[in-house]
């Protein structure tokens, strides 16, 4: 029998984690953990920590507590529409009642559905830990630094992710926000590929553009160099630049073939979705 822990506060959970370290497993909704039958001598069940169930706004950030399920976030109007739409397409009602965004991030699957949108929004992961004197410390890690590879994350053995923060400037005032998941069915489908694009047009120019692709590699693909090249372009000149932009992405997109899809299909559809997004900006 495993030793189960039911901390009621983050501090209590951090104290247990600091003691048990990598001998312990963290479980929130359990929708990933249970499928792969992950276990450890000590299991820390986080879902009774009421203090991790919150959505709040500061001047700069929207902060989503680690305990928030998809179903709760879909109903929360503070959460950006593009993220809520993305979550509506995840799995099924029963999974959305237990699955969490933070679980999705920490699971670090290349097909994690919230990841492209979170990358495009420059989301920041908040990792909390307890030092040797029992003092709580927090690290803030940009999502593209936090996710290191397939199921690999930058989380230390005494840490728990307490929240994810989304800069409000990454979605407020944006003129075009678009997300597409390509799967075999409407429900219960792991993405063959997915696309997130966010753009701000100001005074006839592209002031800000973010483009992310999911399920095409070990982690989400976002190319800041190409985005920077596009930024500043007058919308009237975008049509003329389109072929060059698509060619640049074609060079960096190297998806794999697996049981869900082929390399050729993935690449083609990624580029089609990108082209469609660019066309929509021009309109």
């Amino acid at each position: 029998m495993v030793k189960a822990h039911y901390p009621e506060s983050l501090n209590e959970a951090l104290t247990i984690k600091a003691e048990k370290k990598d001998q312990s497993l963290l479980v929130m909704g359990g929708s990933d953990v249970m499928v792969v039958h992950k276990t450890a001598p000590d299991v820390i069940y986080l879902n009774s920590i009421a203090g991790l169930k919150y959505v709040e706004q500061t001047e700069e950030y929207l902060r989503i507590g680690a305990g928030c399920t998809y179903a709760e976030l879909i109903d929360d109007e503070l959460v950006p529409g593009i993220l809520r739409d993305t979550m509506r397409e995840i799995a099924s009602p029963a999974i959305r009642n237990v699955g969490t965004v933070v679980g999705n991030i920490c699971n670090a699957s290349p097909a994690g559905d919230t990841l492209p949108v979170l990358y495009a929004m420059d989301a920041v992961v908040v990792a909390a830990g307890m030092d040797d004197n029992g003092k709580k410390i927090e690290r803030r890690i940009p999502i593209d630094k936090f996710i290191l590879g397939v199921r690999k994350i930058d989380l230390r053995e005494n840490e728990i992710v307490s929240a994810v923060e989304i800069p409000r400037s990454s979605y407020e005032g944006m003129t075009k926000l678009s997300h597409t998941k390509v799967g075999a069915r409407k429900a219960e489908a792991i993405a063959k590929l997915s696309f997130a694009g966010i753009c701000k047009v100001e005074n006839g120019k592209i002031a800000d553009i973010r483009i992310a692709f999911g399920s095409v590699g070990i982690t989400v693909l976002r190319q800041r160099d190409i985005e920077e090249m596009i930024a500043g372009t007058p919308v009237s000149e975008l049509e003329g630049k389109k072929a060059d932009i698509l060619a640049r992405y074609a060079e960096v997109l190297h998806p794999i073939s697996d049981q869900r899809s082929t390399e050729g299909y993935r690449k083609k559809v990624c580029l089609n979705l990108l082209e469609d997004f660019l066309n929509n900006i021009c309109e």
Partner: peptide, 25 residues
Amino acid sequence: EGECGACSVLVDGKLFNSCITPLAN
């Protein structure tokens, strides 16, 4: 594996798949 819903139950009035719900939860 949480895909078919044959194991559905209500937990605090919400639909859960009991096959991927740890007893602890």
